[in-house]
Design a protein around this nucleic acid. Structure first.
Length: 357
DNA sequence: AAGAATGGCAACCGCATAAGG
DNA sequence: ACCTTATGCGGTTGCCATTCT
């Protein structure tokens, strides 16, 4: 029964690849292709490597047009933007960056990009501490330099390089179409199952149906577009955003920002909307985005998120909404703080002097 | 100058899912 | 239908180079 073992584990070489091994593998694949069978490949070229290892070596290093290092600001922005939207789905992110591998992007993110953002976070925290200190010294908010209290709408045109650009593309064709799944519970069930949710009867199921009824699906979307559309429609399906045909803008291939019909779709309006309609919930992997200023009063929020082991589908959906939206909120918050930070630099010395006095 | 600490990257590991037998 | 392997993916590890003390 079953297939033959993939390789003799005891007889395969591990560790760094020698130039001869690279040459063998490259020459063979360039001439014959992989043949769709990585496991058989090393034997064909007399390589003492596991097929899995060959595949990795080819994909991450030997494949033509692979770029190593030297990430541009644009690439940074794309990576951050997508990470905020879809998390650590490196293969999807890599698919939007020609010549980059998921492994490369993952390494770049973990070793540099995250730290880059952490640096920003740290600077912001120092600034907040100074501000708090001033407040504790009896200064009223109105006495604090105006640049510290910056309206988000004042800074819409200043772009943080690590956050999504404002949408400039026209809406995608599918955005105004009517949802296809309204009143089709079988389709809804199948979709829910496809999306990986546990489907249950009762209130949760009804909730799911109500939510999914807002989700237009377009088969022509690329994987990443579908993924992003899915995520952001989930945001839009939050009860606070009640428009039945909420919109998502896909800027070129990657920048994504949810907007609603009848709204200008400005960064600030979206930000405020999200601030007041979500329940901030810290998200694994996003700790670096959190700061004191990001903590929001959510007493007015109607959604109470509980994430336990026995989450039902409705809970999972709520969690997903909360998670995705919150990550955007935190990111936007960080974005705003970054803008504030730029403006505050010139006032920094004055504040220091103030504190010292 | 030498040892320790840190950073960057390639490769491996383990899991989930698809698919062969 | 079930068992087992293949594949793809994200997380983690280990090595080497560089920087710091």
């Amino acid at each position: 029964m079953g297939r033959a073992p993939c390789c003799d584990k005891a007889n395969v070489k591990k560790g760094p690849w020698a130039p001869e091994e690279d040459a063998k593998l490259k020459a063979y694949i360039e001439e014959h292709g992989t043949g769709g069978n990585w496991i058989a490949l090393p034997q064909k070229i007399d390589l003492k490597r596991c097929g899995k290892s060959c595949r990795l070596r080819w994909l991450n290093y030997l494949r033509p047009n692979i770029k190593h290092g030297g990430f541009s600001e644009d690439e940074d922005r794309i990576i951050c933007s997508l990470y905020v939207s879809i998390g650590s789905r490196w293969s999807i992110i890599a698919s939007q960056l020609p010549g980059r591998t998921d492994n490369d992007i993952k390494n770049y993110w973990n070793t540099r990009l995250k730290k880059k953002l952490l640096g920003k976070q740290r600077k912001d925290q120092i600034f907040c501490e100074k501000k708090d200190l001033l407040m504790k010294k009896g200064r009223s908010p109105s006495e604090i330099p105006s640049s510290i209290v910056v309206s988000s709408s004042d800074n819409i045109n200043n772009q943080d390089p690590y956050l999504p650009e404002l949408p400039v593309m026209p809406p995608m064709p599918y955005l105004n179409q009517e949802p296809r799944f309204v009143n089709d519970h079988t389709s809804i069930r199948n979709l829910l199952i496809k999306l990986g949710g546990k489907f249950s009867s009762g209130d949760n199921a009804n909730q799911s149906i109500n939510m999914v009824s807002h989700i237009p699906i377009d088969n022509t979307l690329t994987d990443v577009q579908a993924s992003l559309q899915k995520d952001h429609n989930f945001i839009a399906c939050n009860g606070h955003v009640s428009s039945s045909s909420s919109s998502v803008l896909l800027n070129s291939q990657y920048n994504i920002l949810p907007i609603q019909e009848g709204q200008s779709g400005t960064f600030s309006s979206m930000f405020e909307e999200m601030c007041y309609c979500t329940n901030p919930q810290k998200l694994d992997g996003f700790e670096f985005l959190y700061g004191d200023m990001c903590e929001m009063n959510t007493s007015g929020s109607s959604s109470v998120i509980t994430c336990g082991d026995s989450m039902e589908w409705g809970d999972q959906m709520n969690s997903l909404i909360s998670t995705t939206t919150t990550s955007n909120v935190h990111c936007l918050s960080n974005y705003q703080r970054s803008l504030q930070q730029q403006e505050v630099v010139l006032q920094d010395r004055a504040i220091d002097d103030d504190i010292n006095s």
